[in-house]
Design a protein around this nucleic acid. Structure first.
Lengths: 150, 150
DNA sequence: GTCAATAGTTTATTTTATCAACTAATTGCG
DNA sequence: CGCAATTAGTTGATAAAATAAACTATTGAC
């Protein structure tokens, strides 16, 4: 008979704070982002730029404002992110047919190619971050977070 | 018969990215921190300083290094956080009896008093952030995140 | 006792976040 | 229609936070 629980890594794990979801998410996200940035570094991407690239590749043709809202970023940060992806030839700004004020962000072939490599790395990083959970638990977590976040 | 699902707020909610836990946590945390900082502003605290205060009040007498690790922050940021809490008379640095290199962070009466007010506000903010979930689902989420984060 | 490692601190640098101002375009509405 | 208010994107300024090096005082291993 073996112990099922894996030992918490920290003496403070019983603190009241450890019951606050806000705090738990901060910690979980810290390791998650670290893992993601680690694997993405080889492709000169970060979690940030990967997210933008992903949405461009998705083909939904988001405007920059939509990207800003969806990624919880300020519009001015999207400008910078799109600028560098565009300079690298990974995405392009296209005029929005419905509104001449907006740009619609689309991916290039190079962008899709890079994304296809990046996404498998990100999936690996995520798997590593969630290694404490079973597949079913990972899905539960995904679903609960979606309800909170989307 | 009514629809159970609440409508996602964004046209991009079906993007691949929305399946990535990393992304979902970033979004969830964005609203969570916003709510928390909002209610804490009246007490001149932020999520950050509240976390430090909470761990001080808990009485575990954490060293600054332990705070840094537990909060996923750099040691130098702890210095700044403790500095202002100490200047406000909410916590104090005490010599660690076991290691003269370390300080142990304890709370003052004023710190405990402020924390008791802050913690109810934070609980309300959390409830607001998680309003999409039932009580049981909130606990499930807490447990899953603990397994990932702790 | 010497030496490598650690806790805390300071400082510098870079990255993110926040916000105001501006242009061009759109929308609402009298 | 035509004017007013709003919105998308951009720029620039400023504040907050993350990252990392260097330094002091300890500690712990040997």
């Amino acid at each position: 008979m073996t112990k099922a629980k894996s030992a918490p890594k920290h003496r403070l794990h019983t603190a009241e704070l450890a019951n606050e979801i806000e705090f738990l998410m901060a910690r979980a996200r810290a390791v998650g982002t670290a893992h993601a940035n680690e694997v993405l570094a080889g492709l000169d991407l970060k979690a940030r730029s990967y997210a933008v690239l992903s949405l461009a590749v998705g083909g939904a043709k988001p405007t920059q404002r939509e990207l800003a809202e969806f990624l919880s970023l300020d519009a001015s940060q999207i400008v910078a992110l799109v600028d560098v992806l565009q300079d690298r030839g990974l995405v392009a700004r296209e005029p929005d047919p419905n509104d001449r004020r907006s740009n619609v962000i689309v991916s290039t072939d190079a962008g899709r190619e890079l994304y296809s490599r990046a996404s498998v790395l990100v999936a690996q990083a995520e798997a590593r971050s969630l290694s404490a959970l079973s597949d079913e638990e990972r899905n539960q977590l995904r679903i609960l977070l979606s309800r909170v976040a989307l």
